[in-house]
């Protein structure tokens, strides 16, 4: 049965019972039905499971579900409501997406970067994304997309 936790998930208040050792990644994917957050390694080395917790990026595979009690969580599914956010659009248009498996984690990281730094240099973008693995793109179009999204005056991205 576990313990009841409550938190804001993509803008909506949710309650769920979790075990003390349950990981946020598994709770999101299996109990909340949000499979956009991906398992790539399970030990915090690839960044595919990145989500925003109180606005900061965390690796959901290393976060206990208990820890989100009373906090606010945003996953990839929480970004686009009616239409794509700018960062999603630039990823799509620049071809930063190939197999797409690393994409949610990287878009979440990009959001976090652009929140803290409105106009990062290419080098700063690459440095910031060091924790996220992508095997398809060679990162070129990913960096380009973030640069382009940054160029737009955008409060929401």
């Amino acid at each position: 049965m576990g313990k009841k936790i409550s938190f804001i998930l993509n803008g909506v208040k949710r309650e769920v019972y979790v075990e003390p050792n349950e990981l946020l990644l598994n709770v999101l994917r299996e109990k909340m039905g949000l499979t956009g957050t991906k398992y790539g390694c399970g030990i915090g080395e690839c960044g595919a499971c990145t989500v925003l917790l109180n606005g900061n990026p965390v690796l959901s595979c290393l976060t206990l579900a208990m820890d989100v009690d009373g906090k606010e969580l945003v996953t990839i599914e929480g970004l686009a409501q009616e239409e794509l956010q700018i960062i999603q659009r630039t990823f799509l248009e620049e071809g930063a997406v190939q197999c797409g498996f690393c994409t949610p984690g990287i878009i979440i990281m990009a959001k976090s970067l652009l929140k803290n730094k409105t106009n990062p240099t290419e080098e700063e973008i690459r440095e910031y994304l060091k924790g996220n693995l992508c095997r398809c793109t060679g990162y070129v179009n990913i960096v380009k997309s973030i640069k382009r999204a940054a160029g737009k005056a955008c409060k929401k991205c």
Binding site: L34, T35, G36, T37, K38, L84, F91, L92, G95
Partner: peptide, 19 residues
């Protein structure tokens, strides 16, 4: 042109076997 299934991937709705 960007890949035609990119929308699914940038929104997290793309379903992989994992999912």
């Amino acid at each position: 042109l960007p890949q035609l299934d990119s929308f699914h991937k940038v929104t997290g709705i793309a379903k992989y076997t994992h999912d």
